[in-house]
Every structure is written in C-alpha cells, then in structure tokens.
C-alpha cells in the first residue's frame, strides 16, 4: 500500500487522483480552497457550485454538497441558494470564459447587488475544455485556436480585467483579490478572506486565480511556469484589490 498523499481534509479522497490534465492550475486552486475551508472549519456549511468548462471536473472533488450547473450559470444558482438559505456558505467556481464572457452579466449583477456569495475564478487565458479558443483573458498577441495569428487587440480588444471591474462596481463591503497558483499560500489567504467576508455576512467576495493550461498552451513545465510567473502578471496584477477594511480606514481618515 502506498501512502496517501497529504490532502486537505475537505477533499474527497475517493475521487483522487483528480481528473484535470497534468500541470493544470485547477488542482492548485482547489487545494488552496480546500485548505481555506479546513482552516476556517466550515466544511459542513459549504455549498459548492461549479461551472461548465474544465471547472466542471470538480463536481465530486470535495466532501461538500456540490451542484454542477451550466456554462456561466453558477453565479445565479449559488445566488439562488444563498438567498433561500442564508446560513449556508456558497462558493461559485468557474473559469474565465464562464465568469467574464457567457456569465458576465451574472458576475456584474451579483457584484452590484452585493450578493453574499464567494466567487472563485481560474484565469488561464483560454477556453480549456473546448480545445483552447480565445477567451476574454487571452493576452495581446497570444495564439489560440480562434486567434491563430495572435490576439489582435485592434480587432478583439484588450483582456478583461476581472477583479478591477468587480472592484469598480462593488460597494465597501466587497472583497476582491487576484492570486496565482505560483503562490498557493497567498492564494489560500485571499480565499480565506473571501470566505470570511461571506461568513461575516458582509457581502460579495471575488478571487481570481492565475492558472496554467499547458495542454492548450502547448508548453512544457518550464515554459508553463514562466508564462504564469512572468507573462500573466504583466497584465494581471496580483494582490488584494479591495478589502472591506479599506473603506473603514478611509472613512476614519
């Protein structure tokens, strides 16, 4: 018998190893989330919702009640649950296509209404499940299946700055951050704060996580990490963008 690797307590061991491609960022984001759930001791209060796209592969990932929804529709499903059962902690998990394209109206309006849910979005600059098409987050010049000569910003605009957008449309009770799988400890802390914001009944919380997609990027391990650590942060700044405390400080100051 080989030793079972160290996993967050809230992970469902029976469904491991998980179904993501080797090198995929989802496993690391979900590890950070699992550890955050463990440390906050809220496993029995979580309702987890996952989108369509690669994120759907997390439908049996945790030992928590889970709903796999439609592409872009995780936000309204989790909103519906939270509105009906405010005592639950609702997490909507999705990719950049689900959050910033097909489900962008839900993200914008859930943020505007200050829905007391936590949205975690893995940004890997492309549509992974469908085979690597251009996403709202595809970097300028980046080649994908639907931008084979590189993303032309004159033709298709600039990448969506998700957390910056959410920060701009939320009120002072929101928590907004961008982490990266290159720094899982930091990402876990952001997710913890995002969940804590919901537990405090404060309001909307949103964490984008920069994540790798070596399958569709056609990169080896070294180039994958180089892209995550060097290329993506040039456009997607890592850090906390809005914390509930900031407003209080401003008000007091």
């Amino acid at each position: 018998m080989s030793k079972v690797p160290n996993m967050p307590k809230s992970w469902r061991v029976e469904t491991k190893p998980h179904k993501f491609c080797p090198g995929c960022g989802h496993g690391l984001v979900l590890k950070a989330l699992g550890e955050a759930i463990d440390e906050l001791n809220i496993q029995d209060r979580i309702v987890f919702g996952c989108d369509i796209g690669c994120s759907l592969l997390s439908w049996d990932f945790f030992n928590v009640d889970t709903v796999q929804t439609h592409h872009g529709r995780t936000t309204p499903v989790m909103t519906g649950i939270k509105r009906a059962r405010p005592d639950r902690i609702c997490i909507a998990y999705m990719g950049d296509g689900g959050g910033y394209a097909i489900g962008s109206q839900h993200l914008v309006n859930a943020a505007s209404r200050n829905e007391k849910i936590t949205l975690i979005l893995a940004n890997n600059c492309n549509y992974g499940m469908t085979g690597g098409q251009m996403a709202p987050t595809t970097l300028p010049g980046m080649k994908t299946e639907t931008s084979p000569y590189g993303r032309d910003i004159e033709d298709t605009g600039y990448p969506t700055q998700g957390p910056e957008m959410v920060a701009a449309i939320t009120q002072h009770k929101a928590y907004v951050a961008r982490g990266t799988v290159a720094n899982v400890r930091q990402l876990k802390n952001y997710i913890k704060k995002a969940l804590q914001n919901q537990m405090d009944n404060n309001g909307f919380s949103f964490v984008e996580a920069l994540a790798g997609c070596p399958t569709n990027w056609s990169t080896n391990a070294k180039d994958t990490w180089a892209f995550i650590e060097e290329e993506m942060p040039k456009y997607f700044k890592v850090g906390e963008i809005k914390t509930p405390a900031q407003k209080e400080e401003n008000t007091n100051g």
Binding site: P76, R83, Q105
Partner: peptide, 24 residues
C-alpha cells in the same frame, strides 16, 4: 417570504433552481 429581482430571465430560472435545491 422573499423576493429577488434578477438581471434577466436566464438568472431568474437558475436562481429558482438554486432556491429549490436548497429545499425551499
């Protein structure tokens, strides 16, 4: 009783799914 005005009917349908899933 409660009410939520959503951003469109896609959301109205899916939030209703959520409400029902939560047992209401």
């Amino acid at each position: 009783r409660k009410f939520l005005q959503t951003e469109d009917e896609i959301s109205a349908g899916f939030t209703t799914c959520g409400g029902v899933l939560s047992g209401k």
